[in-house]
């Protein structure tokens, strides 16, 4: 309940100690190589499999709980069914003459292997994205991510973009999420005592029950922000003023090593992508090396 962004784990692993900017860069790098094309489906599954193995190793180093990873995946079942319907059962547009049918129905409607693989492929990518974000959120306090974000936005100051204000806003929002969740919980309990049933009832009744939560929550948000702005003002906060920073981000030896490793991995996968896309034959490893026909 307390942490909507995946729970920060109480360990102090190498990954926990890494600079949050490096971690965010790594996240972006890994996500990009997740989404690169690597030739035919067999190829893609092989390469993404290797990538997934790397991610699992990182998860192990970061002491990410595999159970919480699985519980995160639970919510994906619906998505998987949805993908299957779209890619497999909805007739494919465009040229399907080169596709491999699994079954052909008497009326000529066909289900293809390609559809099945495509949905699996998208699903696989999603699983990896979840694993990656889980690693980030379980090893990095939300505040450090805002510091990193502020740092990434720094160049925008040249065009007078108020990066300080943005990052203050984000960090205040993050700071108040647990407080507001707690409050929402209390309000719901109070309304339940007045006979509201948040689970049952028809749509109109549900809308009514939700207003009994939203209205008090909003009104408390307003009064909180009112008081908060007074408190900030009293302590001399000026949004556009020059401020020093208590938190400093320092790059250590480990950070550089990590950055190099990430760079190598990204470079390796990009090279593979280049080969599979541009060098004849490389779009089908299985055929190239073992002579197995795959698509």
């Amino acid at each position: 309940m307390k942490n909507v962004f995946g729970k920060l784990t109480p360990y102090n692993t190498v990954i926990h100690r890494l600079d949050s900017r490096i971690k965010m860069l790594a996240l972006i790098g890994f996500m990009v190589i997740c989404f690169l094309p690597y030739g035919n489906y067999a190829n893609r599954f092989i390469i993404l499999g290797i990538l997934f193995a790397i991610i699992l190793v990182i998860m192990a180093i970061a002491k990410c709980s595999f159970l919480s990873f699985l519980s995160n995946l639970k919510s994906l079942w619906f998505m998987m069914i949805f993908l299957l319907i779209i890619f497999v059962f909805v007739p494919q547009a465009g040229d399907t003459s080169s596709y491999h049918p699994i079954v052909t129905f008497p009326n000529g409607y066909q289900i293809y292997y390609e559809g099945l693989f495509q949905s699996l492929h998208v699903f696989f990518r999603l699983v990896m994205m979840i694993a990656l974000t889980l690693i980030l959120t379980s090893t990095t306090p939300p505040m450090e991510m805002t510091y990193a974000l502020e740092w990434f936005l720094t160049p925008l100051r040249i065009i007078k973009f108020p990066t300080q204000v943005i990052s203050m806003t984000i960090s205040l929002a993050l700071r108040f999420i647990p407080t507001l969740l707690d409050e929402a919980n209390k309000i719901m309990k109070a309304q339940k005592s007045r006979g509201v049933d948040y689970e049952k009832g028809f749509l109109t009744k549900k809308i009514k029950s939700v207003t009994t939560l939203i209205v008090p929550l909003l009104s408390s948000c307003f009064s909180r922000s009112d008081e908060l702005s007074l408190a900030m003002n009293a302590r001399g906060y000026e949004p556009y003023g020059k401020r020093s920073s208590y938190r400093i981000l320092k790059i250590g030896r480990n950070d550089i090593v990590a950055l190099i490793i990430v760079f190598i991995i990204v470079a390796a996968f990009s090279t593979m992508c280049y080969f599979t896309q541009n060098v004849a034959g490389y779009d089908n490893f299985l055929h190239l090396w073992f002579g197995i026909g795959a698509f």
Binding site: P141, P142, M143, S171, L172, L174, R175, T179, R224, E227, L228, A231, M232, R235, G236, Y237, E238, G241, K242, R243, S244, S245, Y246, R247
Partner: peptide
């Protein structure tokens, strides 16, 4: 709650100091 601005105790004590640069 509504005057605790920093994300941790040290950040909050530092808030006013940061404002003074």
């Amino acid at each position: 709650d509504n005057q605790f601005i920093g994300s941790t105790v040290e950040d909050d004590i530092a808030f006013g100091l940061e404002n003074r640069n």
